[in-house]
Structures are given as C-alpha cells and as structure tokens.
Simulated assay, not measured.
Amino acid sequence: MTFTQTFTAQPADIDELGHVNNAVWVRWIQELSVAHWAAIAPPAHQAAYVWMITRHVIDYRGNVVEGETVTGETWVPDPPRGARFDRHFRFLGTDGKLRVEGVTTWALLDRATGRLLRITPEIAAPFQP
C-alpha cells in the first residue's frame, strides 16, 4: 500500500549549504501525504475531512542538490489510534540511496467544524495493508 511521487529540487529549494533546505523536506512530506489522500480516499471523505500534522520525526541521511530528483514513498503500516495515525515516509535518490526518512503523526478533523474526529475503520481501510 505504498504511494509514490517524484520531486525535483528547484533553485528556490536550495539553502546556503547548496542542498535542499529542511523546510522544503517538510513541504515535500506534506505534499506526498496529501497526494496519497487525494489519490485513494473517496470523494465524500475528501469533502468531509481534513488532516492536520501533529508531529514530525525526520532523519536526514543524505543531501539533494539543485536539479536532482528523488522518489517519495509513503505508507500507513498500523491502524489509527483515536483521531490519529502515523504515516511513514522515505525519499530515495535515483541511485536508490536513502536521503530522508521518518514518521509524521496526523489527526483527522471535521472540515466544517475543525473538531477532532475518531478515524473510523471505513476511513482507514483504503490505507491499510
């Protein structure tokens, strides 16, 4: 149940050290996760719910320079806990080497009220192995 998407480092993504800035990695993590939701969740769920990140754990294993492409992979290995679940991710270079990996904790919100909601088995099912 792994979802993949590619990202290419643009000039604006590069920091003073000559590689992708940490804030850009966070943006790519969010874009990857949101694309996974948009690709798999039923339209009714997308209209009714929105996700909020409550925690990031990110391990930087290698650098990415301008023009380099990485493949982001994300998956949800475990069932949700109440309103939250952990989404794992990693980014691999074209050489297959790991650049970044980690886990984000997401919380489900009712789009209309902004209140936390328990993740039902129906909502989780498309993302579970």
Rank of each mutant, 00 (worst) to 15 (best):
F7S: 09
I123Y: 02
I58D: 03
Q10K: 09
Y60A: 02
G67Q: 06
A107D: 01
V34M: 02
D13V: 08
Q128E: 09
A112W: 00
K97D: 14
P80G: 10
I29K: 02
M52Q: 09
L92P: 13
R99T: 11
G18D: 01
E73Q: 10
E101H: 14
A112M: 06
V20M: 09
S33W: 00
E16I: 08
I119D: 02
A38N: 10
A44T: 11
H36L: 04
P43T: 11
A125C: 06
L98F: 02
P129D: 11
V100M: 05
D59A: 15
F85Q: 11
T8N: 03
L116M: 08
P11Q: 01
I53D: 12
A9Y: 10
V26G: 01
L117R: 13
Y60K: 03
G96I: 09
L32M: 11
T104C: 06
R99I: 15
W25D: 04
W75G: 00
N21D: 15
E66I: 12
L117I: 08
D86N: 08
Q128Y: 07
A47I: 02
Q10G: 07
V100A: 09
R90L: 13
Q5H: 09
A47C: 06
V26E: 13
H88M: 14
R111W: 03
T54C: 11
E101I: 02
T69S: 04
D95H: 08
R81H: 13
N22E: 13
E68C: 12
N63R: 14
T94P: 08
V24G: 00
D86W: 00
G96R: 02
E68Y: 11
W106E: 15
E101R: 06
I40E: 14
Y49M: 04
G18W: 03
D110H: 02
P121V: 08
Q46G: 12
R81D: 15
W28D: 02
I14Q: 00
T104F: 07
G114V: 09
F7L: 10
P43N: 08
F127H: 07
G102Y: 06
T2F: 00
R27E: 13
